[in-house]
Amino acid sequence: MKREQEPKTAPGGAGEAGPDGMAERALVPACPKGRPGRLQLHLLSGEFDQLRDFPIFESNFMQVTRLGEVVNKVTMGVAASSPALELPDLLLLAGPAKENGRLQLFGLFPLQFVQLFVHDESRWQLKVKFRTGRAFYLQLRAPPETRDREFGQWVRLLYRLRFHSAQGAVPFTQEYSWLEDEEDEEDQEDEDGDLMEREELRDMEARLDPQSSELWGL
């Protein structure tokens, strides 16, 4: 079984976050600097007032199986529900609607209940795992000339999320016993037993940092 890789420290990575490091980075990797991505455009379309103004870092992916077989298109973004946040706090997933193929928002998930891993760096694949145990694999869709850079931005992001989590004294990757799961694609029972209640949720206030750079210096 392939193990998720620890994210590598990259220039401008966790611990070096700051306004200086982000000035030359693209804001939304799927698009040239300054142009909103597909997901952001969707949220700006007028149907999601509450999500309209979120700063978003997004990319287009193919959902693949653990072995790399293509399943469908996904656009994944991370967003901050407040510009004052030091790091994104939400994960957004969207994909083509069944009826017309237009981008449709599927879900909005607090990042404190989601883990991101590098699944296969050579194939630009990430693994997204919910705290319920549900997981899926995403392979970056980007032009060859920008793919490595864009994937690197995701690696830096997940490093920072992990680093930030570690500041809470509980390492992000070791927080839950199911981390080293044997198989993720099996559906979990929707148990009423309070899975989440076993963990004391971290204080969301701890993420507030008005001095933070926008879009997390990626």
């Binding site: 599927f106 879900g107 909005l108 998930f109 209940f113 919910f130 319920t132 029972e189 929707d190 899975l195």
Partner: peptide, 13 residues
């Protein structure tokens, strides 16, 4: 019959 526990918000239209 078996549905994953919802985390956050899931959307339908």
């Amino acid at each position: 019959p078996v549905h994953d526990l919802t985390i956050g918000v899931e959307f339908g239209a």
